[in-house]
Simulated assay, not measured.
Amino acid sequence: MSDAYDFSERIGRVAPSATLAISNLAAEKEAEGADIVDLSVGEPDFDTPENIVEAGKDALDAGHTGYTSSNGIPQLKEAIAEKLRGTGIDADADEVIVTPGGKQALYETFQTLIDDGDEVVLLDPAWVSYEAMAKLAGADLSRVDLAPHGFQLEPALDQLAETVSDDTELLVVNSPSNPTGAVFSEAALEGVRDLAVEHDVAVISDEIYEQITYDADHLSLASLDGMADRTVTINGFSKAYSMTGWRLGYLHATEEFVGQAGKLHSHSVSCAVNFVQRAGVEALENTDESVTEMRDAFRDRRDLLVDLFDEHGVDVDVGDGAFYMMIPVDEDDQAWCEAAIEEASVACVPGSAFNAPGYARISYAASEERLREAVDRLVSNDLL
Rank of each mutant, 00 (worst) to 15 (best):
E95T: 07
Y209T: 08
L106S: 10
G150P: 14
Q152K: 09
G150E: 03
D166I: 00
Q159L: 04
V201C: 04
E198P: 11
G181F: 12
D90K: 12
G102D: 10
L123F: 09
D206W: 02
D200Q: 06
V201R: 03
D90V: 04
L189D: 04
L171E: 11
A137V: 12
L141D: 10
A187Y: 08
L189H: 07
D116T: 15
V197C: 08
V203G: 06
T168L: 00
L160Q: 12
Q152A: 06
T112H: 05
P179S: 06
T87I: 00
D118E: 13
G117T: 14
A161H: 03
F110A: 11
L160P: 11
E119M: 00
T180S: 15
D167C: 00
Y107W: 12
V121H: 03
A139K: 13
S175E: 07
A147S: 15
D167H: 09
V96Y: 07
L195V: 13
P125E: 00
L136S: 10
G181T: 09
A182Q: 13
V203A: 05
G102N: 07
A134Y: 14
F151G: 02
R143K: 15
S185A: 12
D90R: 09
P179Q: 08
L157D: 05
D158K: 03
F151V: 05
S175L: 03
E95K: 06
L153I: 04
E131W: 04
I89K: 00
E190Q: 14
E207L: 01
V96M: 09
D145W: 04
L146H: 11
D140A: 01
L113S: 02
S165F: 06
G101N: 07
A132Q: 15
T168Q: 03
Q211C: 02
L113G: 03
Q111I: 01
L146Q: 11
E162I: 00
L157R: 01
L146R: 06
I212N: 06
I89H: 09
L146T: 06
A182F: 05
L153K: 08
Y107E: 13
G102A: 11
N178S: 09
S205V: 00
P176D: 02
G101H: 03
T180C: 01
E169T: 15
G117S: 11
L195D: 13
A139S: 13
R193M: 08
S129N: 12
L136F: 15
Y214S: 05
L171N: 09
V121R: 02
T87W: 07
L122R: 02
L136M: 15
H149S: 01
D94L: 01
